[in-house]
Design a protein around this nucleic acid. Structure first.
Lengths: 231, 231
DNA sequence: GCCGCTAGAATATGATCAAAATACCGGATG
DNA sequence: CATCCGGTATTTTGATCATATTCTAGCGGC
């Protein structure tokens, strides 16, 4: 699984819960940088840069980078260099296909198992998301959007599909950020409300359809900025 | 991408082509151990053990393990330990769904782009595969079966989907080996001949269907050994 | 314009420290 | 008296770091 579950919080009563190892922390930090932040598509990433930025040792950074390259969040640039991949149109088509194949199914499974508590957590995330859109806060929008999807998919308790979805979100992340950087947070319609009401009414098919549409919209947003804008 | 393409062979005329770094070599070795060989589901894997077995340094082994855990080929066993995952029935269902979603599409795309040279390569792989089955050579069977699928999928030139497929094959590998260890190579029908003839006649849909059936058969083989045999 | 040199970055090693698992031992108990 | 339990010591393993080595890219000289 991508966000490896081993180091999740344990019984908080039990004082012996241990902090995750450095390479895990570094991995999460870089991941967030890619998903929400600093790192743009095409940008070069140096190990030493990360070592000084995150001030961590060299070994944990290395391991985090290996993990992220395995997930496609980074790529080897031929000779010892690492960079954030830029999506081509062909790759966007692949992403679209894979996300359509996986994410609605995850949503379907999640809808079958979801608890009221999880639903209200999703509602609160969506509230924060809308607030971020109104503020024009791109980073917060990206974070809450990501959290909405992952929180929903977690409910499916389907580790393998979840790992694939994480990987796909990770691959699309940097480009999505570019979209928002160019268009702002206006005109970012989403289907989260449909998904939420379908969740409340207990219709897995409707949830899957809402997510399918949501994914489609996201892909189309990216496609528009990748394609030559006005011919 | 899983089998990162950066270090593939270059122009053999050019004498300055470089050998892959150690962590890449170690990665491939461990990967093959998982897919075809020594490592059984549930088995614990120690870093130091691999260091001595493969006699490599500690860092490359560590990096290879990070990569493999990111791909689901290994899993964290709670506290710092790593092991080969055992498939549950629920996970097998996930695998089945994902493979059905991805691999026929890859086969479809491959069929549209494939060259006669690649077709004959596939034929030769399938010959070797059948020979291995007749010999009862489990390891060779697994290798050729894996090579058949990856060689076909490579032709699609769809890196993201290919990476997902690699990950899925990797997750199923150890269990497939258990199947063969228990049942031998007899009764391992495959749909490769159908796929090959569909490739020759240029029908992507038929290729996709053949691969879909092939994947199904593989999954069912595993399901049979996972399920309690006689109720 | 081409070639060798230098600076800097990545790879890889081995040592060191910390944590976990296992083995071991002594006492209590049936 | 044998056995089982709890706790401790040992030993195995993982995590991290500092460092040596190798390679790449960029630059200046020819």
């Amino acid at each position: 699984m991508v966000g490896s579950p081993s180091y999740e919080r344990r019984s908080s009563l039990n004082a012996d819960f241990h902090k995750p190892p450095t390479h895990e922390i570094v991995y999460r930090k870089i991941r967030e940088m890619i998903l929400f932040g600093e790192l743009a598509p095409g940008q070069a990433v140096t190990i030493q840069g990360l070592v000084t930025d995150l001030d961590a040792g060299m070994t944990p950074v290395r391991e985090a980078i290996r993990r992220l390259t395995a997930e496609g969040a980074l790529q080897f640039q031929g000779n010892r260099r690492v960079s954030v991949p830029e999506l081509t149109l062909a790759q966007l088509d692949e992403l679209a296909f894979a996300r359509q194949a996986i994410e609605p199914q995850l949503a379907f499974l999640a809808a079958q198992k979801i608890t009221p508590a999880a639903i209200s957590r999703l509602e609160s995330i969506d509230d924060s998301l809308n607030a971020a859109v109104r503020r024009g806060d791109v980073k917060a929008y990206l974070e809450h959007n990501h959290r909405f999807h992952t929180t929903l998919y977690e409910q499916a308790e389907a580790g393998i599909l979840f790992a694939i979805a994480q990987m796909l979100l990770l691959r699309g992340g940097p480009s999505l950020r570019v979209v928002c950087g160019r268009l702002g947070t206006n005109g970012l319609p989403d289907k989260h409300l449909q998904a939420l009401s379908a969740l409340r009414s207990g219709s897995p098919e409707a949830v899957a359809n809402a997510i399918r549409d949501d994914v489609n919209q996201g892909i189309e947003q990216i496609r528009m900025t990748l394609s030559p804008p006005g011919v």
